[in-house]
Nucleic acid binder design. Structure first.
Length: 373
RNA sequence: GCUAUCUGACCUUCCAUAG
C-alpha cells in the first residue's frame, strides 16, 4: 500500500490524474492515506466532485483528509464552500485555519482574513505570509510592510512574498535592498527579483540578471519570454521559446498572446495547433487573435462550437469581435446575453457605440454603466 | 518504536489618455 500510495502522490504533484485514478483503482487495499492521495490529485485538478466521492468512501477520515478537500475549495476560491466545510469539521489544526485564511486572502476578503488571523489559536509563517499577500493584493502597502516587520520568523518564502509586494507597488530600490540583504537565495527569489526589475521596465538589467543567475527554470524563461513580447521583440521571444528546454502551458500561452498582440494570426494559430493541452487562457487568446484581425466567422465558430467553457474574458473578446466589425446591433444583442459582466464589458460596449458613430446612444449607455473606470 | 499524505512566495488572456 505504501508504494502504491507514493506513486499516487507523485502523480498528484505532477497533475497526472488519470494515471493516479488508474493506480488507485487497481491497488489491492485502500487505507486513509492512499485515499488522501487520491483526494489531493482530484483537488489539485479542481475536480471537487470526484474528490468528494473518495472522501465519502473513507471510513474514518482524518485531519489530512479534511484539510485536503478544504484546500481544494480554497484553490478554486469557493469561499462559501470553504466556510461551511470548515464549520462542519470535527476538529481543526493550524493547517485548517491557514487554508481558511488563504481562501480569504486570495479572494481579496481582507476584513474576513483579518478576523480569522486574530481568531486563530496559533499562527506560523504561513499565516503571516497569507496576511502579507492579502494586504498586498488589495493595495495596502503600509499594512503589507507592517505584517512583514512583525513576523516572528522569516524564511525564503516570506522574503519572496515581500519582494513581490515591493515590486507590485513600485518600490524597486527597496526590493533591491532586500534581495542584497538575504544571506542565501533560491530560484524563486531570483525570478521574483527579475520580475521586479521588469516591472520598472528595465529590460536590459533584467537580461543581465537572467544571464547571471546560477540556474534557470521554466518560470525564469517564461518571465523573460513575456518581457520580450511586451517589449515588442517577437524575434527574441520566439528565439527563447524555441530554445527553452521545458515548456509549460504558460509558455505557450505567452507566445500565443504575443502573436495575437501584433495581430499575427498565423503565428498565433501555429502555436495553438501545436498545443496538446489547452486551458481557458489559450482559448481566450486565440479568440482575441481572431477578433483582433477581424475574422468574425472564425471567432464565432471557436466561441460557439470549439470552446467547452467560457468566462467573462471570453465573452468580452467575442463582444469585441462584433464591435470591431462594425456590427453594432449584433454587439448589442450579444451584450444582453452575458451571464456576468465586468468593467471591461462596459468599456468594450461603450467603445462599440462611440467608434461606430452612435455618440448619443453611447452617452446614454455611459450614464447607465454599473461600473466605470 | 520507525517511514508516505494537507496550508503560504515567482511567470500567461483583461483596462492601457491619445500620440
Amino acid at each position: 500500500v505504501f508504494s502504491w500510495t507514493t506513486m499516487i502522490f507523485a502523480c498528484a504533484t505532477e497533475g497526472r490524474v488519470e494515471y493516479a485514478a488508474y493506480l488507485f483503482d487497481t491497488m489491492p487495499l485502500h487505507n486513509v492515506v492512499c485515499c488522501n492521495a487520491m483526494i489531493l490529485a482530484y483537488a489539485r485538478e479542481g475536480n471537487l466532485g470526484e474528490a468528494h466521492r473518495i472522501f465519502g468512501r473513507i471510513d474514518g477520515p482524518d485531519l489530512f483528509s479534511w484539510n485536503t478537500i478544504l484546500s481544494g475549495y480554497a484553490r478554486k476560491e469557493q469561499v462559501v464552500e470553504v466556510e461551511s466545510l470548515f464549520e462542519s469539521m470535527p476538529m481543526w489544526n493550524i493547517i485548517s485555519w491557514n487554508v481558511l485564511l488563504s481562501a480569504y486572502a486570495q479572494s481579496g476578503h481582507i476584513l474576513l482574513a483579518k478576523v480569522i488571523f486574530s481568531k486563530m489559536p496559533v499562527k506560523d509563517t504561513v499565516s503571516f505570509t497569507c496576511m502579507l499577500c492579502a494586504f498586498s493584493l488589495v493595495g495596502d502597502f503600509e499594512q503589507t510592510k507592517q505584517v512583514y516587520d512583525s513576523m516572528p520568523w522569516q524564511d525564503l518564502i516570506t522574503a519572496s512574498a515581500m519582494l513581490a509586494a515591493y515590486a507590485q507597488h513600485g518600490y524597486l530600490e527597496a526590493a533591491r535592498l532586500l534581495f542584497c540583504s538575504l544571506p542565501f537565495v533560491n530560484i524563486i527569489i531570483w525570478n521574483t527579483m527579475i520580475a521586479a526589475i521588469l516591472q520598472a521596465f528595465n529590460l536590459e538589467e533584467a537580461k543581465i540578471l537572467y544571464k547571471c543567475m546560477p540556474y534557470k527554470n521554466v518560470v525564469s524563461c517564461n518571465t523573460m519570454l513575456f518581457a520580450f513580447a511586451q517589449n515588442g521583440d517577437l524575434y527574441e521571444a520566439k528565439k527563447l521559446y524555441d530554445s527553452m528546454p521545458h515548456h509549460t502551458i504558460l509558455s505557450h500561452n505567452a507566445m500565443l498572446s504575443a502573436y495575437a498582440n501584433v495581430e499575427d494570426l498565423h503565428g498565433a494559430l501555429g502555436i495553438f495547433k501545436s498545443m496538446s493541452a489547452k486551458d481557458l487562457v489559450t482559448w481566450n487568446s486565440t479568440l482575441a487573435a481572431f477578433a483582433g484581425t477581424g475574422h468574425l466567422e472564425e471567432a464565432k465558430k471557436l466561441f460557439d462550437c470549439d470552446m467547452a467553457q467560457h468566462d467573462v474574458v471570453s465573452w468580452n473578446a467575442m463582444l469585441e469581435a462584433y464591435a470591431r466589425c462594425g456590427l453594432l446591433d449584433e454587439a448589442r444583442k450579444f451584450y444582453l446575453r452575458f451571464p456576468q459582466r465586468n468593467v471591461v464589458t462596459g468599456n468594450v460596449m461603450l467603445a462599440a457605440y462611440m467608434l461606430n458613430g452612435c455618440i448619443f446612444e453611447g452617452k446614454e449607455f455611459f450614464n447607465s454603466m454599473p461600473q466605470k473606470n
